[in-house]
């Protein structure tokens, strides 16, 4: 006899584990993201040709690489469900909030892996003079979670359309722009000697507010997006 288990968290983890398993077997999203990130880092490195960059340029280029790598891969978690037609079974068996929860965790893990590879590569080939490591780490972490919160719901929206790639970029860019501005500003402060958490307080507050609002909005809207 089957045993009943409940809880959205458990179901979200089931969706996440399924996605990780499928991803490790197909490398559907990770290849796209990593290829884009590595190629972009090398392209930037080649373009600047060893010229020293100001802190604001280093921070801007780093977040541009991270953002465009996201565009290459974060939509795949939903797009793949629609393209392989497994979305119907997922809709039938899984509650909507578990699907969103699972996809959020999956995209977060994907982006953390991307950052673990991209940020050191960027530091080596483009140059990152980190003055305050923990502030830098905090900015990357909050920025990453914010991007995932905003783009995952966009991915769900665009997955049912015919021009997925273009729409994902068009819809997510204006949503992500405030986050990018704050993340660049905060990261810049982590690169400038003598600045710390006190000087970056406003950026941290805005980023945390942004990610909370986006994640809550995502959960409120997702039921309609997923089921209609």
């Amino acid at each position: 006899m089957p045993m009943k288990s409940s809880g959205s968290v458990k179901r979200s983890i089931a969706v996440f584990r399924k996605d990780i398993k499928c991803e490790l077997r197909t490398r559907y999203a990770i290849n796209a993201i990593l290829m884009f990130a590595v190629v972009t880092v090398f392209a930037v490195s080649w373009a600047i040709g060893g010229v020293g960059l100001t802190e604001v340029l280093q921070a801007s280029l780093l977040w541009i690489v991270i953002y465009f790598s996201c565009l290459a891969g974060l939509s795949q978690s939903f797009v793949k469900e629609e393209e392989s037609k497994t979305a119907l079974a997922l809709r039938l068996y899984s509650p909507a909030e578990a699907v969103l929860g699972g996809k959020l965790i999956f995209n977060l893990v994907l982006l953390v892996v991307l950052n673990i590879i991209t940020v050191p590569l960027f530091g080596i080939f483009v140059g990152l003079n980190i003055s305050n490591f923990w502030l830098f780490f905090t900015m990357i972490l909050i920025g990453t979670v914010g991007i995932v919160g905003a783009t995952t719901i966009v991915a769900a929206i665009i997955s049912k359309t015919s021009v997925k790639g273009a729409l994902f970029a068009v819809i997510s860019f204006p949503m992500i722009l405030p986050l990018l501005i704050m993340a660049i500003s905060g990261t810049k402060k982590a690169l400038i000697p003598g600045l710390g958490f006190a000087e970056a307080r406003m950026e941290i507050q805005v980023l945390i507010s942004y990610l909370v609002v986006m994640t809550v909005l995502g959960f409120l809207l997702f039921d309609t997006v997923w089921n209609d």
């Binding site: 009943k4 969706v15 398993k21 079974a89 899984s94």
Partner: peptide
Amino acid sequence: GLVSPDLVLYDELTAIENLLFFAGVSGLYF
């Protein structure tokens, strides 16, 4: 319970993994 040509299961998972997954998200444990 639905059996339909439009219902597609995960090709990348084994049959058992498919059943475990859908049971899990349905709140059942086998």
